[in-house]
Design a protein around this nucleic acid. Sequence first.
DNA 1: TATGAATGAGTGTTCATTCAT
DNA 2: TATGAATGAACACTCATTCAT
Lengths: 206, 206, 206, 206
Amino acid sequence: MARISKAPGERRLELIETAERLFFRRGFDETTVSDIVRELNVAQGTFYCYFKSKDDVLAAVIHRSISQGVEKLRTAIAQPARNAGERLSRLVSGMLSEYSGHSKLALYMQKENNAGIHQKSVIEVVSRVTPLFEEVIRDGTHSGDFSVEHPAEMAALLVGILVHLLHNPGLIDEPPRRERMCATMEQILRASLHGSKGDQGIQLQW
Amino acid sequence: MARISKAPGERRLELIETAERLFFRRGFDETTVSDIVRELNVAQGTFYCYFKSKDDVLAAVIHRSISQGVEKLRTAIAQPARNAGERLSRLVSGMLSEYSGHSKLALYMQKENNAGIHQKSVIEVVSRVTPLFEEVIRDGTHSGDFSVEHPAEMAALLVGILVHLLHNPGLIDEPPRRERMCATMEQILRASLHGSKGDQGIQLQW
Amino acid sequence: MARISKAPGERRLELIETAERLFFRRGFDETTVSDIVRELNVAQGTFYCYFKSKDDVLAAVIHRSISQGVEKLRTAIAQPARNAGERLSRLVSGMLSEYSGHSKLALYMQKENNAGIHQKSVIEVVSRVTPLFEEVIRDGTHSGDFSVEHPAEMAALLVGILVHLLHNPGLIDEPPRRERMCATMEQILRASLHGSKGDQGIQLQW
Amino acid sequence: MARISKAPGERRLELIETAERLFFRRGFDETTVSDIVRELNVAQGTFYCYFKSKDDVLAAVIHRSISQGVEKLRTAIAQPARNAGERLSRLVSGMLSEYSGHSKLALYMQKENNAGIHQKSVIEVVSRVTPLFEEVIRDGTHSGDFSVEHPAEMAALLVGILVHLLHNPGLIDEPPRRERMCATMEQILRASLHGSKGDQGIQLQW
DNA sequence: TATGAATGAGTGTTCATTCAT
DNA sequence: TATGAATGAACACTCATTCAT
């Protein structure tokens, strides 16, 4: 086969994107390394020039996918907002739509037979999203919109709720349930974070 | 080898118990059907007289383990209580201690390399524990201790928090964090469920 | 494929014989486990019911082949003999003809690309043949035919000479060289083992 | 990476020395070409500017190592000596100490998992040392110290004994065995080479 | 000479499951 | 019910070597 050299970064990216597409289409276990390289018309060994193992690409794929979502969230809370509740709402709404809609990650999370991906994804999501919640909660407490004694712990627990929702798409599959879930979520947020001011501005778009 | 017949129930139970011990000790994937039957001095085929597959015993093991915990929870909330908050507290405290202490399940949940068991366990725990929460919340709402519009959804979200804690033992490994986590949990519960009466009686033992 | 059960001993023997034939024909590395089972029309897994690994059959093959040769040697020295020299001559002649003629082992020993087999074979041959030499030398010393102070060490060194010959077929490939080698070998044996009696009876048939 | 040109001989030597160190430390199969070039901070391809293949460096490494030993032996027998026995003794003692002590080659020879190196080393040692033995024996026969009809064959067989000792360090690991082995070796040499003169001067230093 | 990205052939092994007895 | 010999699919990974630059 013709030998085509490329810049390492480019080759690596091609591999990640191809792997992502295949993992997404058929699941991790059902995708072989051979499948990936065949699609790119490169040799089996080329794969191993860029990744230590099949698990290693998976990590890269997950990291990349999640990074994109996290970046959006980060941007969302960086926008000017009337109050802390609005920022938190953006965070929660963002997570729900980003990870439970038609996004790549949503599927990993929900597909059976992908327990491994699932778990790794959750771990990465949690570890990267929790700090964002913590920041918003902490800021809100400073501004008086919220009143939370332990922002880190509160953040962790709220993220827990969201992850649980993403894990269990059955909880929100029918519109009426989704409505009720959304209302309940708002209730929990408002009650748990209530500060001295009247309107915190929590309002989920979902 | 001599053929030893036993009462079907007994043989089945032996298999479940042996499988549980091994799954627990080395993880699911690292335990082979051979390991299980060798320990019991029965033939490979015997295993398949009682279980359709290896996954099938896993289901039995998980079901059995979780049932024991759920039974305790059911008993706990059946005891007379001064108010709904006390019942809920028992439920939450019970779950935390049952599943995060030294119980069998706690380990499945926390061990890496057991993504499959993990996932199945969570599904079973959630499906069996959520109704208990729903019942307590619904009762509490009737009695006026709580004021929750959508008990089913509230139950689901609260269970989500708990599952998240069990998934992430790192969140509660140091005593001070655990204290803060416990306080935050109480805060969320009190605020989210607050009814017309003053004292709901929510007080976690952990 | 039809499932044909056989007595374990029989199956095992079939596998060893087939493996031997193939190792012998194409070398160890060039023979795959698939080759072996295909020839016998059994499944890949069947192989692993009887052997832990490919190396494991190799050990079995070598052990079996060498055992046959050693058995002949043992028989040869057990026959009545006029003196120790005759017994020793049988041993040496036997080894040379058994292992350097057209016997299976001869080929392992001489084939390149079989360094592994080679080495394992030598180790096994040495460990099983040296005691026979030691016995004959010891007996000969007792009877006065030989006069050897350290029979074990003398046995080891003489076996060394023989193994070296087997390793280096080039030393004996032309008849005249072979003649000279044989005479020299006799000289060494006679001189090294010389006892009080005149004729020890050392006379190689080769 | 910066391209660093060096005198060809120098580069080649660096590669040989690095390869030797690694082969010695981890064995031939366990050392990759990557390991070698990484250690020297040169590219994969550079290796192939100097050696046709990995086996090719191995040959160079072995050749170089053995040459050093052979040179010492050659020097030893070139020194003035009272008689042929003394020269032979130097040869035998030299081989034993050179190749069985702490020398590089000794380890190749004794390490398992290095069947390939082992075999190649032996072949090279034998082919280069045997002529030295032959020379000494032939000279000794001319001078009357020895009386050997076929010097080439005698040399080959004596080398066989020595190689066998080097192969089987177990034969000489305990001091008492070593003593006996040394005495037996002397006995064989004296008896096999005995000439018309009384004292041949064979006396091993080991 | 030197680089280093690319090549690609090659296989031992596991173990859940089956089925003839 | 129990046995246990037999099945067989399925695949990640290495690394010596090449070659376009």
